[in-house]
Design a protein around this nucleic acid. Structure first.
Lengths: 191, 191
DNA sequence: GTCTATAGGTGGATAGAC
DNA sequence: GTCTATCCACCTATAGAC
């Protein structure tokens, strides 16, 4: 990833916020101009096309997200607590009325370049791999059922996060996501 | 719901297709003009604003969906088979490269009127109620664990469908959705 | 690096003839 | 009910001055 100056980062911040709250096709360079205080021509200086913006935004987001996953895994040595740590992040996002940025871009995938789409697929794969490791750890620690297949269960957990988030946001009820996560974790323990 | 003539239905068909494949903000009246073969002014005759289009589209979709749910419940007297029947529908949709129309509109909720948003919330609530009934039935039939809470598990199942669909479509791998559904149903049996 | 100015296209939407 | 013609606001994007 390139080095970006403060203006570029502010632009990405706002673009990311719009993407998570409204979708990639629901904001314009004019919106960024209003919110950041630089003209649209300046925005084009940093991100010549909106596809470039999407690419940088995705790069930065995925980078930060993967760093955060590492931090959660370092902070907690319990597989179950790692999943709960990840869940907490999703719950906080939805309580701000936002959706997962990559989830939103996945919905808007037809508007995005192959390059961005490929990075989105990687995002889901990496996150799933991280979840699978935590589940594997949880099984070894006897917190989760030995019957679980870590890979399949990781797909289920991630699907639950994304889908629960989509519906919780629609209902404006962050607690909805909390409930479905609690339920899937309970089933991981008792299967 | 109003009675709509053949042209209006064709327009809704195409609008629905665009919504499920690209999102509500990613198609225009010009796209409908090209695909249906009537001028944009004619489309405005049927749907004066794009919000009106969204409303009619949602009404028709939800109507058809709830009818389909009734049909599935009638066809199959097994709770587990009812859930599998619903799952099959979602798998077919994702195998066509589409997302759940209400799921997509839920992502685009900031662009939609309160009326449409309220209908979307109802869609998820009704579908969840239907799922809860099937789970309750499955418990009575000893197919699902007696430990399950039907309401909570229904929220989990619906979240899994929506999230699994979002990710499966991103990966262009309908089988992904099939796997997560199989997993959640397995956990319903063994909890 | 940020600006003014503007091009060229597309968005949703309307008036009025047939 | 469908058309032609058109409006105007907005969109992404560029040229060129500072």
């Amino acid at each position: 990833m390139k080095e970006l100056n403060s203006t570029a980062h502010k632009l990405l911040d706002i673009a990311e916020h719009y993407t998570q709250t409204q979708g990639f096709n629901a904001f314009s360079y004019k919106d960024l101009q209003r919110d950041v205080g630089v003209k649209t021509s300046t925005i084009h200086y940093y991100f010549p096309t909106k596809q470039d913006l999407a690419l940088c935004m995705t790069d930065r987001y995925v980078d930060n997200f993967l760093t955060m996953l590492e931090a959660i895994a370092t902070e907690s040595s319990s597989g179950q607590e790692q999943l709960e740590g990840l869940a907490k992040v999703y719950i906080r996002v939805v309580s701000q009325g936002k959706f997962c940025m990559c989830g939103m871009l996945a919905a808007d995938m037809s508007s995005l370049s192959d390059e961005v789409n490929s990075k989105l697929s990687d995002f889901f794969k990496h996150t799933e791999d991280w979840i699978a490791k935590s589940i594997q750890l949880g099984i070894e620690q006897k917190a989760f059922s030995a019957e679980l297949d870590p890979v399949t269960s990781a797909a289920l957990f991630l699907s639950t996060l994304e889908g629960g988030m989509l519906i919780a946001r629609k209902h404006k009820r962050p607690n909805y996501l909390e409930i479905v996560i609690t339920e899937v974790l309970t089933q991981f323990r008792n299967r």
